[in-house]
């Protein structure tokens, strides 16, 4: 019986030998570069446009077109893209093996299905985390390098200004929260993957579920109001809570708990289903 460590390394080896794995990194790189180029060329116009509201009453001083604004814009843009990129790899973890017929090879070896699943999910999760770290590196690292530090101005219900000194922990918390959200997305794709024989279904399925529920929640707001607090999709943009001026700790805690509950549910279904599944592929 193999140690989990070996299995995880094998799964990571497989993930990073696959071309599709790099689509995510490539896409993130291109989007971030596009945002940075956009800010470089159009930042002042954007700033002036946003500032119209304050311009009436105030004069300002300070640099708000900076690396932190870039990072915030990157987060704002990518929280829609990253779930797709996460599903691209995690939706393939089980179904991809079924599709290529390699499950037969693996499962006739003395290997525990539970361990294999744990290894696969942890490897998929590692990919997810690397994707987010890559986002931080290129988005925040590149942003700070090219645009420097400064205070962050965030438009929510109100206009919030955050001092440069408090931004590292806010972004850290936002990224940590985002990682949890993406772990839930990964678990959803993983669960769908355990029911499918090819990876297209789980990938499209994950994206469709997320976008579908989000659209229904938004459009049918009054109808969905009682249900929304119990949907995991409601909490996907929850990282924005860390850019409220006063942290709503109860709201954040609730977001985390609901997401953890979904994580447990998705993984539970996956393990229950896969352990007794007949390998027919």
């Amino acid at each position: 019986m193999k140690s989990l460590n070996t299995l995880i390394r094998i799964e990571l080896f497989k993930i990073f030998k696959k071309g599709r794995t790099y689509i995510g990194f490539g896409a993130i790189f291109l989007i971030i570069i596009a945002i940075q180029a956009g800010i470089h060329f159009e930042g002042q116009n954007l700033f002036d446009f946003i500032m119209q509201q304050l311009d009436q009453n105030f004069q300002f001083e300070g640099n708000v077109i900076n690396g932190y604004l870039i990072t915030y814009l990157v987060l704002n843009t990518l929280w829609i893209h990253v779930p797709i990129l996460v599903a691209l790899v995690t939706g393939d973890l089980i179904a991809g093996e079924a599709n290529s017929g390699t499950f037969r090879l693996l499962m006739t070896r003395p290997i525990s299905r539970t361990k294999l699943l744990i290894a696969k999910f942890l490897a998929g999760w590692t990919y997810t985390v690397l994707l987010i770290l890559f986002m931080i590196l290129i988005g925040m690292g590149g942003g700070l390098l090219f645009f420097g530090k400064g205070d962050l101005m965030v438009f929510k219900d109100s206009i919030n200004f955050f001092s440069a000194s408090e931004l590292p922990w806010r972004f850290f918390a936002a990224f940590a929260y985002g990682t949890l959200s993406m772990t839930v997305v990964a678990a959803l794709a993983f669960m769908l993957s355990s029911f499918a024989e090819n990876s297209i279904g789980p990938i499209i399925g994950t994206v469709a579920i997320i976008i579908g529920i989000t659209i229904i929640s938004t459009i049918g707001f009054s109808l969905m109001k009682p249900v929304n607090p119990w949907l995991f999709t409601t909490y996907l943009p929850g990282w924005q809570s860390f850019f409220e001026f006063e942290l709503d700790k109860a709201k954040i805690l609730r977001s985390v708990l609901v997401q953890v509950a979904y994580l447990v549910l998705f993984l539970g279904v996956t393990f229950y289903h896969f352990r007794k599944k007949d390998i027919l592929s």
Binding site: M1, K2, T6, L7, I10, F13, K14, K17, K18, G19, S100, G101, T102, R104, L105, L106, T108, R109, P110, I111
Partner: peptide, 27 residues
Amino acid sequence: GALIEKPDFYKYLTARENLEILGKIGN
């Protein structure tokens, strides 16, 4: 040892890499 139906492997890996994976799992 077993070979079931079609001999399917990880097509994007080399013969050696495929065997390495299976060998590692098989102690």
